[in-house]
Computed example of a mutant assay.
Amino acid sequence: MQKKIIALAVAGLASTAAFAQSNVTIYGSLDYGYGYRTDARKAAGANRGVADSSSRIDGGQSAGNRLGFKGTEDLGNGLKAVFLMEQGFNGDTGATPGNSNTAGASTNLGAATGFTRQAYVGLTGNFGTLIGGRLYTPHWSFVSSIDPFGAGTVGQFVNVYGGDVNALLQPVRVDNAVAYVSPNFGGFTLTGAYSNNAIGNENTADNSQNNTVYALLGQYANGPINVGLNYHLIQAASDGAAATVEATKSVQNITLGGTFDAKVVKIHALYSNNVVDQTAANADIKIDNYMVGLSAPIGKVTVKGSYMLSDGNYAAGGNAQQYAVGADYALSKRTNLYTAYSMIDNDSEVKNGVRITRGASVSDASNSGFTGTTAYQSGFQVGVRHQF
């Protein structure tokens, strides 16, 4: 049960061993495979409207490659110290990417080395769990657990979740953060988090130049049911001359989702409302996201599929739809083969050239998102992942 409590704080603790004694564990994930994409992105010239294509070997397609260290120390009387340090790397080049605080966006804080995925320390006991450092947001941990594709491959929900209009609609990690996870009350847990460093490039001269994050997740997981409600708010710096949240006042995300495991098939569903309160010179951005999906185990094979709709309810917005199918084949408990195919259909009537498809590079750093912001995109992937 304690393992489940810790896992709710940050996704990286999902595989943490039970805290029975002092220990240090080295762990990691290696993912490598082939991907093909076609993208109708040529907007000018003689080949206008002709689809571009990309065929390449990539690492980190189904999940970002990583190497980590995690451990606990028994302090007595039910109190334990916990820590985790996790570094990502590109499997095809061996290079270490810069910090990524948002889906599809990187912030390079000096050298691009170090434990940029996660780095935290804290205490856990009968009171719950309290940790501090560089953390996954409760939003990302929760929504990733609802996605049938686990926020990986070309089928991941984030491809059309919020989009290019504001990368911070999909917050992944935050620096200078603290998070608290309550004890488990009959399957219900409450997670709260705070950070005064939302996008990783704040000036530390004074607090007026900090972009702050407030997050609260209530989740019920018991038997076949796993449901939750998450609130995530990014408040822009009060100093208008400082680095702000993409020239906005605030970014608000409310997400309701869950899964129901009927054994022969698991049902996935999610709804989120995103509001970007911009400055007086810009209209507010409002986006509603809907996802339904399923996953079904058949022996060593798990088949899965999802449908995602992102509805931009503002003057320059449009709609984006994604259809995705895939399968995993378990070679062992630690090694699996995977394949996925998805198709994105963007609104052809988008005003002002703004589309809400997420623009992300095809690399470990972006965890296999699509490139460009065009009317039609499709992608196929096949690969192998080993965890240790």
Rank of each mutant, 00 (worst) to 15 (best):
I6F: 00
T38A: 12
D39C: 08
K42A: 12
K42Q: 13
A43T: 15
A46G: 11
A51C: 03
Q61V: 08
A63R: 11
G64K: 14
G68C: 01
G76H: 07
G88M: 07
G94K: 09
S100Q: 13
A105G: 12
A105L: 10
S106Y: 06
T107F: 08
N108D: 14
L109C: 12
T113G: 14
A119M: 05
G122T: 01
T129N: 10
I131W: 00
T137H: 02
W140Q: 10
S144G: 07
V154P: 01
G163I: 06
L168P: 02
L168K: 10
P171M: 07
T189W: 00
I199M: 15
D206Y: 06
G218A: 14
A221G: 11
G223L: 08
G228F: 01
G228R: 05
Q235M: 13
S238A: 14
S238M: 09
A241C: 07
A241H: 09
A241D: 12
A241K: 15
V245H: 06
V245W: 03
T248E: 12
G257R: 12
G258P: 08
F260R: 05
K263H: 10
L270M: 13
N273A: 12
V276R: 00
Q278G: 14
T279P: 05
Y290T: 10
T302P: 06
Y307K: 07
M308D: 15
L309T: 08
A330C: 08
S332E: 13
R334M: 03
Y341H: 05
N346H: 05
S348T: 12
E349F: 14
A365S: 15
S368I: 05
T373G: 07
T373A: 12
T373V: 14
Y376D: 11
R385I: 09
